[in-house]
Design a protein around this nucleic acid. Structure first.
Lengths: 218, 218
DNA sequence: GTCTATAATTAGATAGAC
DNA sequence: GTCTATCTAATTATAGAC
């Protein structure tokens, strides 16, 4: 990505960067669709239109290719979400709602992020350990003070920080992560804008604007 | 399982059923941990303490072994959740809260269910098609009238049935499905009873007993 | 019923040509 | 930089012994 912007168009360095980026993109698709074990470097090379030997040249081995793909995911996440912050002077609640809308759209736009990470977080491994230390834990820690502030203000209920975090993230990403299932069960295409907007509104309404009526009413 | 109860202890039929059940249990563990592609029938056979040729005898091939494992998951789900219904004359809201508590405990007790199904629902395949037709879609359809009733009563907000379903299921299962990650990020053991109870309460509070205060207050 | 032996395929890794 | 050729190991599937 960066090299693409730096190297002159048509140059050898530029083509190298483009090939590397193409391999990385195909790796993202493959790891998301089939998991680390299920994806094969030969299939990734074939999808990228290069020989499988070239993957060793650019990424050394399958493990490092996977880590490069995960680095790319989190860098893109931060890039796209940080610029999404409409720093206008919103109330904390409105700011939170905006953030959730942005995050839901990110999940819909890039379902491979959740697909890759979830498949890896299901079992303990060296890769999970690496991903937690480098990306997942720092991200969670970054949100901790904000979450605590929301709880003090009553925007979040008084529940543990980790329950709130996982509920919010799971609610945002699952519908899109499981797109193929949703398509088959409900006939709904979760890549459509109206579906994405409605899902973001659904989360916001359920979490912050809704309360079940007292029993006597029902 | 059924055969175990029928055949006399120590008999040949009984031992056959026990061996088959042992293979199935190891298959559940392997498919949950590594996905369909990542799990190998040889490792499953080794874990079950039998020769890999025996898996062909009992389950024909890897695909049918996977389907038998999924059948087992959904049969157990229905068995354990249907008997969980404390049919006492509760209000609809209290009944729903009880059901959620039961479902969250199921997710914590059997994280392999979500682990196997999520890994399969991430990409479209013949296995997903089979699972949707036989298990997933019937289950979702079974809950549809109930969900609509909750929405009419105002217990659920006015959002699409599929958003509400996926939010509720995702909120319930993700913390336990990603147990290894949660352990590493928060140092929390999600198999502990107090963690499970607190997470169920967290969902119930956030969804039904909580509403963010108006902006003027914060 | 359970295991041994093996065939056919495919994987990741790597040496070396161009 | 990119590709060809090959090595080693692991996979599913299956035929047949006991």
């Amino acid at each position: 990505m960066t090299a693409e912007a730096i190297a002159p168009p048509g140059s050898r360095a530029r083509q190298k960067a483009e090939t590397k980026a193409r391999i990385l993109q195909c790796a993202l698709d493959a790891f998301a669709e089939r998991g680390f074990d299920g994806a094969s470097v030969r299939d990734i090379a074939a999808a990228a239109g290069v020989n499988h030997g070239l993957i060793k040249y650019h990424f050394s081995d399958k493990d490092r290719l996977w880590k490069a793909a995960v680095d790319f995911l989190f860098e893109r996440l931060h890039r796209e979400l940080d610029q999404d912050i409409s720093q206008a002077d919103l109330s904390p609640l409105e700011y939170l709602k905006d953030w959730i809308r942005g995050y839901v759209h990110y999940c819909a736009r890039h379902p491979e992020h959740a697909r890759i990470m979830v498949q890896e977080s299901i079992r303990d491994s060296d890769r999970l350990s690496w991903a937690v230390d480098k990306h997942i834990k720092p991200d969670h820690e970054r949100f901790k003070p904000l979450n605590e502030a929301y709880m003090r203000k009553g925007i979040y209920p008084k529940i543990t920080n980790y329950s709130m975090s996982y509920i919010l993230v799971a609610a945002s990403q699952t519908l899109f992560m499981l797109g193929p299932e949703v398509q088959r069960v409900y006939g709904v295409d979760v890549t459509k804008d109206d579906v994405i907007d409605a899902h973001a509104d659904a989360i916001i309404t359920l979490f912050f604007d809704h309360k079940a009526p007292p029993d006597e009413v029902t």
